[in-house]
Write a protein that binds this DNA or RNA. Structure first.
Lengths: 192, 192
DNA sequence: GTCTATAACGAGATAGAC
DNA sequence: GTCTATCTCGTTATAGAC
């Protein structure tokens, strides 16, 4: 049961998403969104009663979009190595915009966020881990990927590395650092 | 030229450090420190005129302490693999306290922080990278470590992975996730 | 050094007109 | 749906007594 999102709600979410990914959820206010979209603070409250609710919907939309992108990769990329390559490129796009992964950013602030947001953050990570685990298992069976230990463990290593590499790279304003680390790790999985 | 730090200043820094590592720099106020240390907000301003200055000194002290710990590892641990193991254990202690690395947390908020804090955050990362690069070079020369590419690249991969693994692990309240990822990566460097 | 008191501002949120 | 106006509270920071 999904409510229809008005065009205005979408514009507000876009602005809030950009602000969250660059400044953090505690680093912006309704006044900042107001300035970005050209509506008064009061009008924003009509669309999102509370900031907590806005935050929760932010993550839900982000996860949904990500899920679609992952399915798309499954369709377009034939083998596991290329799927991983394209997975990394999803994050390359994020860091190129001087943003962090929405949920990576929120994970840093999680102790100060409403519990409902924490639940959605973990759902996002779960989604990523499940997809990666699946790809890693396929790759190992097909002989195109090599790694020690469980596929789940490797998936978590991959996800953690991408989140952390973005975090550090952005503090230098240098997306190249992210790509270097990401590909060095990927190389570990694909080398003969 | 180093100013002597009074005992009260140290207590304040301890409280502020804990708050920053758990809630983020934008996630606490002088009122929170006040409650933790039993001084009024006004008294805190006597020791640290502004929150920006408190934040800067927080990072400087953290880096200094870390530098001492790294030197200690150099003295106690004979070979590169054991030095890496002990390096990881520094972070294990952090995540065990349900905290993040101070500079990992601050890196997420960097766009909202005073520029002086951003400079100190990068100095911390530089310090880590330089130490790791050195250990990785030693290990490769001694034949106790194996990795592709430059030692600096491997150092950055290691640092990024640790920061990210902490970030994700803490959002599940599960330090075990951090240790799994850290050791899986270390294993890549030490395996025959 | 620590306190009380307060200034000056920004935050999230609501009431009610249009 | 969007606005103006306002409320209440929390924030950083300062003045001045003790």
């Amino acid at each position: 049961m999904k409510l229809e999102k008005g065009a205005t709600a979408k514009v507000i979410l876009d602005a809030a998403e950009a602000l969250t990914q660059t400044r953090g959820f505690n680093g912006f206010s309704y006044a900042d969104i107001s300035e970005a979209v050209g509506l008064t603070k009061a009008s924003l409250h009509y669309h999102f009663r509370t900031k907590a609710e806005l935050g929760r919907q932010l993550i839900v939309r982000y996860s949904d979009t990500f899920e679609v992108a992952l399915a798309e990769i499954g369709v377009r990329a034939p083998d596991a190595p290329e799927r991983l390559e394209r997975y990394v490129s999803l994050y390359t796009g994020v860091i190129a915009g001087e943003r962090l992964c929405l949920c990576g950013m929120l994970a840093a602030e999680v102790t100060t966020l409403p519990p409902a947001m924490g639940d959605e953050i973990r759902r996002f990570f779960d989604l990523n881990e499940a997809w990666l685990t699946n790809v890693l298992e396929q790759g190992r069976e097909a002989g195109s990927l090599r790694y020690e230990g469980s596929a789940l463990g490797a998936a978590r290593l991959l996800l953690g590395t991408l989140e952390g590499a973005m975090l550090v790279a952005r503090s230098y304003g240098d997306p190249g650092r992210f790509e270097e680390s990401a590909h060095q790790l990927l190389a570990q999985f694909t080398k003969a």
